[in-house]
Each structure stands twice: as structure tokens, then as C-alpha cells.
Lab assay of single mutants.
Amino acid sequence: EADPRLIESLSQMLSMGFSDEGGWLTRLLQTKNYDIGAALDTIQY
């Protein structure tokens, strides 16, 4: 079963217009401990 923190973070990022095609966003959020800010910083640079 998916981590509730992942579901919450992923749904927030999907609502911002990101896609999780191929699961890349799920993996990114997992490596950033479900921190949306850290994930966005990684995507920006």
C-alpha cells in the first residue's frame, strides 16, 4: 500500500499540473522524503 505522505504530496503536485508518467514524480518525491518544496527545487534546476 502506498505511503499516505506520498499520496498527499503526489496529488498536490498533480493538481499543480505535473504528471507522473512513468512514475518519475513518485520516485522523486520518495527521494525527497515527500517534500514538495525540495522536489520543485530539483525540477527547477
Rank of each mutant, 00 (worst) to 15 (best):
E1I: 13
E1P: 11
E1W: 11
E1C: 11
E1M: 11
E1V: 13
A2C: 10
A2I: 14
D3W: 05
D3S: 07
D3R: 05
P4N: 09
P4S: 12
P4Q: 14
P4C: 05
P4L: 12
R5P: 05
R5V: 06
R5S: 07
R5W: 07
R5M: 09
R5F: 07
L6S: 04
L6R: 04
L6F: 08
L6K: 04
I7Y: 13
I7N: 10
I7R: 10
I7S: 11
I7A: 11
I7D: 08
I7K: 12
E8S: 07
E8D: 12
E8Q: 09
E8A: 15
E8G: 05
S9Y: 06
S9P: 05
S9E: 03
S9Q: 06
L10V: 07
L10E: 00
L10S: 01
S11F: 13
S11W: 08
S11R: 15
S11L: 14
S11P: 01
S11T: 08
S11N: 14
S11H: 08
Q12E: 12
Q12K: 14
Q12D: 04
Q12S: 11
Q12H: 11
Q12P: 01
M13G: 01
M13A: 04
M13E: 00
L14I: 11
L14G: 05
L14H: 07
S15L: 09
S15D: 07
M16Y: 09
M16I: 07
M16N: 03
M16W: 14
M16G: 02
M16H: 04
M16E: 04
M16F: 08
G17R: 00
G17T: 00
G17V: 02
G17I: 02
G17C: 06
G17P: 02
G17A: 01
G17K: 04
F18V: 03
F18D: 01
F18M: 04
F18H: 04
F18Y: 12
S19E: 11
S19T: 14
S19I: 09
D20F: 02
D20V: 02
D20T: 02
D20G: 02
D20K: 02
D20W: 03
D20I: 03
E21G: 06
E21A: 10
E21F: 08
E21I: 12
E21D: 13
G22W: 05
G22N: 11
G22E: 08
G22H: 08
G22S: 08
G22V: 01
G22R: 08
G23S: 06
G23Q: 07
G23Y: 06
G23K: 06
G23I: 01
G23D: 05
G23F: 08
W24N: 03
W24H: 06
L25M: 04
L25C: 09
L25T: 02
L25D: 01
L25A: 01
T26C: 04
T26F: 03
T26N: 03
T26L: 04
T26V: 06
R27G: 07
R27P: 03
R27Q: 14
R27Y: 08
R27D: 10
R27T: 14
R27V: 13
R27W: 09
L28A: 01
L28N: 00
L28F: 04
L29S: 01
L29R: 00
L29A: 01
Q30P: 01
Q30A: 08
Q30W: 07
Q30I: 15
T31A: 13
T31V: 13
T31P: 01
T31L: 15
K32Y: 11
K32S: 15
K32P: 01
K32E: 12
K32A: 11
K32F: 11
N33C: 09
N33P: 02
N33T: 06
Y34Q: 02
Y34V: 01
Y34H: 05
Y34D: 00
Y34E: 02
D35G: 03
D35M: 03
D35V: 05
D35N: 12
D35W: 05
D35R: 03
D35C: 09
I36S: 03
I36E: 00
I36T: 07
I36N: 01
G37P: 11
G37Y: 14
A38L: 13
A38W: 08
A38P: 03
A38G: 08
A38K: 11
A39G: 01
A39Y: 03
A39V: 15
L40P: 00
L40S: 03
L40I: 12
L40F: 07
L40D: 02
L40M: 11
D41W: 12
D41Y: 14
D41S: 11
D41Q: 15
T42G: 09
T42L: 11
T42R: 08
T42C: 11
I43H: 02
I43F: 04
I43S: 02
Q44R: 14
Q44T: 10
Q44E: 12
Q44I: 14
Q44L: 14
Y45L: 15
Y45Q: 14
Y45S: 15
Y45G: 12
